[in-house]
Amino acid sequence: MNRTVMIIDDSLFMRKIMRGILVDLGYSVAAEASSGIEAMKNLHTYHPDIILLDIILPDSNGLDLLESIVAACPDSKVVVCSSIGQQLVMQKSLDMGAKAFIQKPFTPEKIAEVLEGLGN
């Protein structure tokens, strides 16, 4: 069965691009969320295998959200996305339980590589 993914990003543009790439790679996009509140709601409904989390969201600090997600759904693998120049945040998110990170701008190849590297 395809692995399910939830995309958390406040930008519709980014979500659509990410969705396109994931579908091409054979993943199933179970849900999208544009805010922390929406993310937590969807998390309980869909229990996605993988969560792509954009670290800057309008209603929450991305790291706080990461903490809530890891606590609520320890089985989901969280991959943090952010722009270049955020290395400190990246390191911190790995310490807090994120499994990998993707730097924006991303390519389909980079996403494939990171997601495959997560194992099952």
Binding site: D10, S11, F13, I56, S83, K104
Partner: peptide, 14 residues
């Protein structure tokens, strides 16, 4: 956040 999002979106589009 607005500036950051614009940067990320712009980078994605090249």
């Amino acid at each position: 956040r607005h500036a950051h999002s614009l940067k990320g979106m712009g980078a994605t589009m090249g």
